[in-house]
């Protein structure tokens, strides 16, 4: 059984921008990645999922509850971290998470301590939010989403702006939470985060669903087609771009190294390397130039 079922979700804003165009996919237990450029519709989709925004058409079921008719049941089961969140700076860490817990109907202060423990913020519980670093604030944001042990965790760009150490810590938190038959939807444009923790993912492009399924299957799309070519100058790079999708370019003291998806096998002599999720994602998005 799927924990989240989205069917034909569409949303068009008043200014005519089609944010979501007939999106359908299912999400089961575990960490589910939502990938896409800025403006692809990820945040709009998540807002619809947490009942903050009403889609124009389509249906969403969360844990078997219909979002339209049983919104409160859905909200009771979801923990949410918005993309941009500036928490109340005058409150202490404990008070803020406790406030959010009480709004969710969780009045046991022990639950607040458990959530803070999960994100390794218990020792800072008396510190004011305004005195925390960016990474610590993010952890408090995750703690408020975790409080009350929700069945679904919806995280919108939770790692943006975090240093590598904080991102590793964050992935650890997610993995531990997902172990207990929970569902996490992780929206990001940092491929590494998805690669490390997500078994399944969806890729949105300009409001449309480009791919939904296992991460491994997405990689299989480009397996055997990823090649590395060493060239002398940028003129050669322009020639390559005409024949293949360029994933990345590395400038060295002598020449350039270009990583490409050689879909039509135009470069049989080039060195073949194993594909990564980033290769598959950039290929889906139309290559480096279009990305």
């Amino acid at each position: 059984m799927y924990n989240i079922e989205l069917r034909n979700i569409s949303k068009c804003y008043k200014n005519g921008v089609v944010a979501l165009d007939n999106i359908s996919f299912n999400v089961k237990n575990g960490v589910f990645g939502l990938l896409g450029h800025n403006g692809a519709g990820k945040t709009t989709l998540l807002k619809a999922l947490v009942t903050v925004l009403k889609p124009d058409s389509g249906s969403i079921k969360v844990c078997g509850y219909d979002l339209k008719s049983q919104g409160d049941e859905v909200r009771k089961r979801i923990g949410y971290l918005p993309q941009e969140l500036s928490m109340y700076p005058s409150l202490s860490v404990f008070d803020f998470v406790n406030y959010m817990a009480q709004i969710k109907g969780v009045y046991d202060k022990n639950q607040v301590n458990i959530a803070l423990q999960q994100v390794e913020m218990l020792e800072f519980s008396k510190r004011k939010i305004g005195q925390l670093s960016g990474g610590m604030k993010r952890r408090v944001g995750i703690a408020q989403a975790l409080v009350g042990n929700p069945e679904i965790l919806v995280l919108d760009e939770p790692t943006s702006g975090l240093d590598p150490e904080e991102r590793v810590r964050f992935r650890g938190i997610l993995s531990r939470f997902a172990k207990d038959d929970k569902t996490i939807i992780l929206s990001t444009h940092i491929i590494e985060d998805v690669y490390q923790v997500c078994e399944e993912l969806a890729v949105l492009r300009k409001g449309r669903l480009f791919y939904a399924g296992a991460s491994a299957d997405l990689i299989n799309h480009v397996e055997g087609k990823i090649k590395v070519i060493k060239i002398d100058n940028e003129n050669q790079l322009f020639d390559i771009q005409k024949q293949a999708v360029v994933i990345s370019t590395t400038y060295a003291s002598k020449g350039l190294t270009v990583r490409i998806v050689d879909k039509n096998m135009n470069f049989p002599g080039a060195e073949s390397v194993s594909a990564t999720l980033e290769d598959a994602y950039v290929y889906c998005m139309g290559g480096k130039n279009d990305a």
């Binding site: 909200r75 969140l85 959010m100």
Partner: peptide, 12 residues
């Protein structure tokens, strides 16, 4: 402005 309203609205 701060995103707190979204967070509160996503709660029951």
């Amino acid at each position: 402005k701060t995103g707190m309203k979204q967070l509160i609205m996503a709660s029951p």
